[in-house]
Amino acid sequence: MRWNWQHEEWPYFSYDSNKLSELEASFLRQSGIVIGALKHVSTDQYDELVVDLISTEAIKTSEIEGEYLNRDSVQSSIKRNFGLETKLGRVAPAEQGIAEMMTVLYRTYEEPLSDKMMYDWHKMLTSGRNDLTDIGQYRTHKEPMQIVSGADYTAKVHFEAPPSNSVKAEMIKFIDWFNNSTKLSPLTRAGIAHLYFECIHPFEDGNGRIGRAIAEKALSQSLKQPTLLSLSATIQSNKKAYYQKLEEFNKGIEITGWLEYFAQTILDAQNYSLRLIEFLIAKTKLYDALRDQLNERQDKVIARMFKEGPDGFKGGLSAENYISITGAARATATRDLANLIEKGALKRTGERRYTRYWLDLP
C-alpha cells in the first residue's frame, strides 16, 4: 500500500477551495459574534472562560489518546500558570505538563513554529514518563512508526509514517510551510497543518496532542488572538469519525473531504465556545438576582449545577441528587427545591419519580 508521503506530489496537497468557501465564511462570521459576546464579559468571567476552555481542551486532547486526567488538578495548574488563586496543592506530572503546554500555546500563538517549540511541548506532555527513548526530540527508533489495531496475528496497519531517518528533513519542510502559509484561509490552513503533521508523526508519542495544538495555533494566528476553542472536546464526542477521516486521507494527496470534515469540527467547537460565553453571562445575571436569597444548601447545589456547564446534569437534577450533594432530609430537600423554583432559579419537568430540575437560564 502507498501512503501519501510516498507520492511524488507530497507534500503538495490538492483540494477544491470552492467547497470550503461557505465554511470559511461561517467561521469568520461566528468569530465576530464570539468577539462581540466577549465585550459583555467581566474580567473575572473572562478568566473563568479561559480556564474552563483550556482545561477542557487539555483533558479532552489527552482522552482522545486514552489518557484520563483529573479535571480539578488540570484546572488548578492552569489557574496557577495564569497567576489566579487556587486551593489545590501538589499536582501529578501528567496533569501539570499538559496544563503548562496549553498555557504556553495560549500565550505564544503569535510566535513562529519551530523545532524547539515542539520539543518543549513534547517535554511538557511527557513529564513524569520513563517509558520513552526520545523525549523532547524527534523519534530515532529504526522500527517503522505504525498505527496498528488488533492482535498480533490479525493486526491491521492503518498507517505507516516516514522512517525516523527522514523525519528531520520532513519537519524542516513542514515548519517552513506552516510559517509561510499565513495567507491561506483559516480553516484550510488549520486542516492541512493537522493532517500534514499527523502524516509525518515525528515523535515517539504525543503526536495527536501536538498536532491538535498546531491546528489551534494556526487558527489563533489567523484571528490574531487566541481562538478560545475546545477543539478536542468536539473531536472526542465522535472520536471514531476523527480516526476514520485520518485513515481515509492518509493514502492520497487530494484532501477536500478531510478539510470539509475538519472545518465543520472547528465550527462545532466554535458554537460550543459561544454557548459557554452566553452561559457565563446568564450565570452572573442569575446570581445577581438571587443575591442573599439562598440558604447554604441551595447555594451549594446551584454552584454544583453551574459546574456541570451549559448542558447541566445529564438528565437533569433529581431530588436524590439534591440530598446526596447537601445531606439534607427528603422533606427539607423538597422545600428547598420548591423555593428555588419560586425564586426563578430552577424550572421543573416531569412528575413523581421522573421529576427533574434545571437551571432557569435565558
Rank of each mutant, 00 (worst) to 15 (best):
L195P: 04
E247C: 03
V74A: 02
E67R: 04
E247K: 00
A155V: 00
K224A: 14
A92V: 11
E57S: 01
A289R: 04
A151N: 09
N70F: 01
I266Y: 06
E95Y: 00
P202G: 04
Y119W: 14
E95P: 00
F197D: 06
E24V: 13
A218L: 12
Q221F: 00
G36D: 10
T61A: 15
K283I: 00
L125Y: 03
S230Q: 01
L88G: 10
M118L: 15
A282Q: 11
T154F: 08
G36L: 10
I214W: 00
S149M: 14
L359Q: 05
F13W: 10
Y106E: 08
A345D: 10
L228G: 09
T133I: 08
W3C: 00
L23H: 03
Q221N: 08
S324P: 11
A289K: 13
I33A: 12
T188I: 14
I323N: 02
R71M: 03
D360H: 05
I64L: 14
A155Q: 14
P11D: 11
A151C: 02
N295Y: 11
I135K: 06
K116Q: 15
I253R: 14
R297P: 01
S73L: 13
K87F: 11
T326C: 03
R129P: 07
T140S: 14
P202N: 03
G66R: 06
S164L: 01
Y287L: 11
I214T: 05
E247W: 08
T133W: 06
R2Y: 09
D288E: 15
A193F: 00
D134P: 02
S181H: 07
